[in-house]
Design a protein around this nucleic acid. Structure first.
Lengths: 225, 225, 225, 225
DNA sequence: CATGAATGAGACTTCATTCAT
DNA sequence: TATGAATGAAGTCTCATTCAT
């Protein structure tokens, strides 16, 4: 459900060597989504077994393709994880931007950030687990590849905080970037313990509200002083 | 330096297969700490390369022992990570309890929690990286083994929150356990981005203060209402 | 340049599955030489990377055809090498026979053999490398397929020696076939070290002369005795 | 038989990480030759199946070691071939130098070169096949690694020619290095066709004599002129 | 207790070949 | 005929673990 909000913006996932199909032949029904199918399968399997414990052949089987096909769309197993993360974080970012467009006040905007990130969980526990747990399986991967896109997301949160400060709604004695990390981390921590333990399906919207309440209360400018 | 605050409370780490020392060989002065040496080496290497990218032989070399020696003290490579995590989190917990003993008011106690966890960074970047990054290296490991000890730590934080609520200092419309995860996650997120990027050594105490300010402000009971 | 001396004598290389050209599509002007284009591309690529290190797709790209097209003209990758070798050695043989036709005396004829084989180098380093190096890529291939054609070439050399013996020009206490191998090997060795090292472009005609001088001097009947 | 002439001069083939055995314990009977055992097995298998068609596991099995053991002594499969070649060519070179020490006259010395190289065959058909055929399986390997040692061998031959020239025994209008390649190539060609075809066991000493006769006759200074 | 050479199961990845279009 | 995306068999190499010394 949640993911349905994210329309795939990437190129149609043709193998690297592919050129445009000759002529206008709109052939092969749902063919172009093979890359997407692989990513989705990887999400599922990585979530259940962990990145390192997952064999490429398992992802292939889950995706319904041959082992070798994976390598037509991804450089290697690492690239699969990084691509997964990059794709998803960009989708999340896009969805966030879209949602923010309709929220004018700083408070609403911050709640929106929190709801969006936690909202990922409702429909996509696998994706949540991959992003919060598996992503960190390789410090190297994170540092070299995923970090840039990740920073874009953090920046978006920081911007919401900074705007709120400029608007006079949030206290100005804290760094927006530090707050972005704090907020992201808080939500990530909740997701992680949730992924580690058993899901309390109902509890997430409640959690969302409580965390938002506390963080907002902590951030609001103390006008009364 | 920070670690020096943690005195090893564990049993002297005798190899499981320990038999009576052969003869009167009082040969090895600081021998009993071999387990500790291995753990310390593992901390260092895991932090730099990640658990999965680290070879057992690399840990052995870093510890100055033979490969096989690792297996006299740990069941297998997984056990090494789990033991490492458990040992360290217990040390952190013990240090936290000790520190809390001297802080009477809820505000001070919460600040203490934050300072302790972030404080780990100042002197022990490696340990911090292992706990925040490697903790998530293996979903399976975490779920099966490390989680219980980890929950003890979360519980300690939750207790601080709950006590504050009971004392009337903190708002009571939030779950202490959810707050514990929020607080842990926030700090964890800061540490992670810090570990991912470049260290801003001075910035941590400032970060500590800012995060504590915001979280405390968010948690304090709104007496004025 | 050298190759221009070899006119293609093979049948026009129709794909095995060739059917009548569809309709009146006189589309492809120089189409029939596709087999030749592939062989030429293979020569180039095999020479640079070696047979086993060369991917079929690389040959295809170098030939400007699709991967699958290779298999319309050759049974498999092995067949490509064997065909290449056979084609080329037969061209060399034909050219040799043609050249020999104009050389009456035994000495001239032997010099002709040497010049032809070394002459291949001047204009066709790739072909030279394929024949001297790649020829030995697969013992199995050589033994099963290429050897017969190769023996034809050796026989031609042996015949030149035998004729010289019969004419009383060459010593008769040596086996013509052994001499053929000796001569071929000597030239092959020169080409190989030349291909291994740096090319001394001018040096080949000089080398050719020197080798011919020595071999001829060694082979000439010792009339004075 | 031939190989027995070559005493292994290499270090006792300990794995790369090995240090000298503690104490003077001359333990493990014929243990140090594991590297040699692998090389010998590789020679055998490469000769029969070719380098590329041979699986590392086949070499391991033939050597009576585990697959992984190969990698304790050799960097990779390529290194196995290169090491094989380097080891053997150096042994051949050493044996040649030793044999030359007892041959004073230029004619004897040249015959010695020829006999040594062809003599390798009598007892070591496998080695001969590997050196003449398999070595050329990889242009890259040859160019990058094996060439230097190979050049040492060629230099030794060239030296014999040059000395003969200086002594006034050989004609001086030919390049010693070119002659070295010619001689090596001639012998190599004989060995190759011999390896490709069926062995004519008796024929080699006869071949050796004939080739030596021709090459010597071709090289001798023409005093009578 | 300690060592480290040896093991061997198993993963990742390549690439020759096929076949639907 | 031609294409090139897809296949999947199979090989190289790694590395956790063992065990004789």
């Amino acid at each position: 459900m949640t993911e349905s909000r994210f329309s795939t913006t990437r190129e149609p996932g043709k193998p690297r060597t592919s050129r445009a199909t000759r002529g206008g032949r709109a052939s092969r029904a749902r063919e172009g989504d093979k890359r997407e199918r692989i990513l989705r399968a990887a999400t599922r399997v990585f979530a259940r077994k962990g990145f390192y414990a997952t064999k490429v052949s398992e992802v292939a089987k889950a995706a319904g393709v041959a082992d070798g096909t994976i390598y037509l769309y991804f450089k290697n197993k690492d690239d699969l994880l990084v691509s997964l993360f990059e794709d998803r974080i960009m989708l999340l970012l896009a969805a966030l931007e879209r949602a923010l467009a309709e929220r004018p006040t700083p408070e609403e905007r911050l709640r929106c950030v929190i709801e969006m990130q936690l909202g990922l969980l409702e429909g996509e526990r696998d994706l949540a687990e991959v992003i919060t747990v598996n992503l960190r399986q390789s410090t190297r991967l994170m540092k070299q590849y995923a970090a840039p896109k990740f920073m874009l997301y953090l920046d978006a949160i920081a911007r919401v905080v900074a705007e709120g400060q400029k608007a006079g709604a949030f206290r100005t004695d804290v760094s927006p970037h530090l707050m972005a990390r704090t907020i992201f981390g808080a939500l990530d921590g909740i997701i992680m313990t949730w992924a580690l333990g058993k899901a309390e399906p109902g509890g997430l919207s409640r959690a969302s509200t409580q965390v938002a309440d506390v963080l907002l209360a902590g951030l609001l400018a103390k006008k009364e002083r």
